[in-house]
Design a protein around this nucleic acid. Structure first.
Lengths: 197, 197
DNA sequence: TATTTATGGCGCATAGTATGCCATAGTGCT
DNA sequence: AGCACTATGGCATACTATGCGCCATAAATA
């Protein structure tokens, strides 16, 4: 097995925890690598033996959580879109997103505060996922590419607002709002485009 | 009048042009002040006599254009929302946004590529504007704060997609798509909430 | 033309990143 | 337990970029 040296595990774990703590305190961009290693009580030199830069550490921190989200939001099979009886909640379960954000709010705060390029990677990945679900569908009133983008970035903006505002509503409520603002209009469009029975 | 020294005008103009050119070439973040002053053929030292940092220069570049947009998107008076005869296009003319982006696409590219804090300032301002239009309205199915945020960040995400994709649709088409995805659902909510005749 | 002011170029201080070197301490394996 | 291995710490160093003081000079305003 890929048994990893205990020291490496310890070092990485310390650095990851230090990054999150500092990012919440003073914002991701403002952190220096020196501060991370000081907080983690790790030699400055050691940082570069594991990560090329700050962003790589951040990716490491986020990857597990984002893979988890990916599973949660996962694939209702593409055939579902062709089934005229599919229900609204099956279309996409958006409140799952908000629950996951709530359970990992510190991580999401850091993610949404971080460099655009990291978020862009996440968005691009999720978009590809959505597009693959649409590809069986015939063209709608709005191009499918635009819908795919909207289905990702609009909920993400709601998440950002939610966190910035101090989560004044429950995850279920936010799911409901996102459903009304984003999902419902798209579902209606899709239903119209389905081949009539 | 506030007649400004010709040299100052010339210096600022050169710096602004250099910033835009460089930002389009290699991305806003990657630019150094040294590069800006070299390109502008201005002394490095002189930069700091006009701007505290890169962001301040960017703000200067964007301010005129954003004020222009503000006028274009401007106020249908708040009473309009209480008028049951108000039409969809009066609700908010979203295609104006896309036309303005098209005419200033270089600037918007730089803006959307730049630091989050600058975009956040713009979003916060626009949000306040929208909220003031809503304040007469009674509570809807979705909290008004969330709607205000959605009305800003969702179109902005569409603009970002449009620019990143190389503007494959016309401004009018994008306006139509934004209308269907964002404005129409909200308009329907508002209409439901209006006191019935 | 005289006075004011912006600019250019020099040097210097500071902060942060990134790497080389070598002794040391912790680790996995037999 | 002992051995070979390798991650780590600490030091020095190079590099890049920001930010400012100083003073001579060029350009603008009046």
């Amino acid at each position: 097995m890929e048994q990893i040296d205990r020291r490496v595990r310890r070092t990485k774990k310390s650095l990851e925890e230090a990054l999150i703590a500092l990012a919440l305190e003073k914002g991701y961009d403002a952190i220096t690598i020196q501060e991370i290693t000081d907080r983690a009580d790790i030699g400055y030199r050691t940082f570069f033996r594991h990560y090329a830069d700050k962003d790589e550490l951040l990716k490491d921190v986020l990857s597990a959580t984002l893979l988890e989200l990916q599973d949660l939001m996962a694939p209702p099979p593409p055939e579902l879109f062709m089934d005229p009886n599919f229900s609204a909640t099956e279309f996409i379960n958006i409140s799952v997103l908000f629950k996951h954000v709530q359970e990992n709010s510190n991580l999401y705060r850091v993610l949404l505060d971080s460099d655009r390029t990291i978020i862009q990677t996440v968005i691009a990945f999720a978009e590809k996922n959505i597009r693959s679900r649409f590809h069986l569908l015939r063209e709608l009133d709005v191009p499918k590419d635009i819908i795919a983008n909207h289905m990702i970035s609009a909920p993400l903006a709601l998440v950002r607002w939610w966190l910035d505002a101090g989560m004044p509503y429950s995850a279920e409520e936010m799911g409901e709002y996102a459903f009304r603002l984003v999902v419902l209009p798209i579902r209606d469009m899709v239903l119209e485009a389905l081949p009539e029975q």
